[in-house]
Lab assay of single mutants.
Amino acid sequence: HFTSQQLQELEATFQRNRYPDMSTREEIAVWTNLTEARVRVWFKNRRAKWR
């Protein structure tokens, strides 16, 4: 589960860029205190939901 702060950060990034690269995902991981893998999976799932 994600905190509302984490989701806000993830959503804001998603609005700007639906396909963040590795370095962007790592930055998000640092800001949100999540692993890069969790961030990558979140984006994958979010893109699926967005379609």
Rank of each mutant, 00 (worst) to 15 (best):
H1N: 11
H1F: 12
H1V: 10
H1E: 12
H1T: 10
H1M: 10
H1Q: 12
F2M: 10
F2W: 06
F2S: 02
T3G: 04
T3I: 04
T3L: 04
T3M: 03
T3C: 07
T3A: 04
S4L: 13
S4M: 12
S4H: 13
S4G: 08
S4Q: 13
S4R: 14
Q5W: 15
Q5I: 11
Q5F: 14
Q5A: 11
Q5C: 13
Q5Y: 13
Q6G: 02
Q6S: 04
Q6N: 04
Q6V: 07
Q6I: 07
Q6E: 04
Q6C: 05
Q6F: 15
L7P: 00
L7G: 03
L7Q: 08
L7C: 10
L7V: 09
L7Y: 07
L7F: 05
L7K: 06
L7A: 06
Q8K: 13
Q8Y: 10
Q8W: 12
Q8P: 01
E9I: 15
E9Q: 15
L10A: 01
L10E: 00
L10F: 02
L10N: 00
L10Y: 01
L10H: 03
L10M: 05
L10Q: 00
E11M: 04
E11D: 02
E11T: 01
E11N: 04
E11A: 00
E11H: 02
A12Y: 11
A12L: 11
A12Q: 10
A12T: 09
A12S: 10
A12H: 09
A12I: 10
A12C: 15
A12V: 08
T13K: 09
T13H: 15
T13W: 15
T13Q: 15
T13R: 15
T13P: 01
T13I: 15
F14Y: 06
F14R: 04
F14Q: 02
F14G: 03
F14C: 02
F14N: 03
F14D: 02
F14T: 03
Q15H: 10
Q15R: 10
Q15C: 09
Q15K: 10
Q15I: 08
Q15D: 07
Q15L: 11
Q15W: 08
Q15V: 07
R16M: 09
R16V: 12
R16E: 09
R16L: 11
R16W: 10
R16G: 07
R16D: 06
N17W: 07
N17P: 00
N17Q: 06
N17S: 06
N17K: 04
R18W: 07
R18E: 05
R18T: 05
R18N: 06
R18I: 05
R18M: 14
R18F: 06
Y19W: 11
Y19R: 05
Y19M: 05
Y19L: 04
Y19V: 05
Y19A: 04
Y19P: 00
P20C: 05
P20S: 03
P20H: 04
P20Y: 03
P20G: 02
P20M: 02
P20K: 04
D21N: 13
D21S: 09
D21V: 05
D21K: 06
D21R: 06
M22F: 14
S23I: 11
S23L: 12
S23K: 15
S23Q: 14
S23M: 11
S23R: 14
S23N: 11
S23G: 09
S23A: 14
S23F: 10
T24N: 05
T24W: 05
T24P: 02
T24L: 11
T24C: 13
R25L: 11
R25N: 01
R25I: 14
R25W: 05
R25V: 09
R25D: 02
R25T: 04
R25C: 04
R25M: 09
E26P: 03
E26N: 11
E26M: 14
E26W: 10
E26R: 14
E26G: 06
E26V: 13
E27V: 10
E27C: 14
E27Q: 14
E27P: 01
I28A: 01
I28F: 01
I28C: 02
I28T: 02
I28R: 00
A29L: 02
A29M: 03
A29G: 06
V30I: 13
V30L: 14
V30N: 12
V30P: 00
V30R: 15
V30A: 14
V30Q: 14
W31V: 15
W31N: 15
W31E: 12
W31Q: 15
T32I: 14
T32A: 07
T32R: 01
T32F: 13
T32P: 02
T32W: 07
T32S: 06
T32V: 11
N33L: 06
N33D: 09
N33R: 07
N33T: 05
N33Q: 10
L34I: 06
L34F: 01
L34N: 06
L34S: 13
L34W: 05
L34Q: 07
L34D: 02
L34G: 04
T35P: 07
T35M: 03
T35Y: 03
T35Q: 04
T35L: 04
E36L: 05
E36Q: 05
E36P: 07
E36K: 04
E36I: 05
E36C: 05
E36T: 05
A37S: 11
A37I: 13
A37Y: 14
A37W: 14
A37M: 13
A37N: 10
A37E: 14
R38I: 15
R38H: 11
R38M: 15
R38P: 01
R38V: 15
R38L: 15
R38E: 15
V39S: 00
V39L: 03
V39C: 02
V39K: 00
V39D: 02
V39R: 00
V39N: 00
R40L: 07
R40Q: 07
R40G: 05
R40P: 00
R40H: 07
R40S: 06
V41M: 14
V41Y: 12
V41I: 14
V41N: 13
V41L: 14
W42Q: 03
W42D: 00
W42N: 00
W42H: 01
W42E: 01
W42M: 00
W42G: 00
W42K: 00
W42C: 03
F43L: 02
F43D: 00
F43R: 00
F43Y: 07
F43Q: 00
F43S: 00
K44I: 14
K44V: 11
K44D: 07
K44Y: 11
K44E: 14
K44Q: 13
K44N: 07
K44T: 08
K44W: 09
N45G: 07
N45M: 14
N45P: 00
N45D: 10
N45K: 13
R46Y: 03
R46N: 02
R46C: 03
R46A: 06
R46L: 02
R46D: 02
R46H: 05
R46M: 06
R47C: 03
R47G: 02
R47S: 02
R47D: 02
A48H: 08
A48I: 09
A48K: 14
A48Q: 10
A48S: 08
A48E: 11
A48N: 08
K49P: 05
K49Q: 12
K49F: 08
K49N: 08
W50N: 07
W50V: 08
W50T: 08
W50E: 15
W50A: 13
W50F: 10
W50K: 06
W50H: 08
R51N: 08
R51L: 12
R51G: 08
R51F: 12
R51W: 10
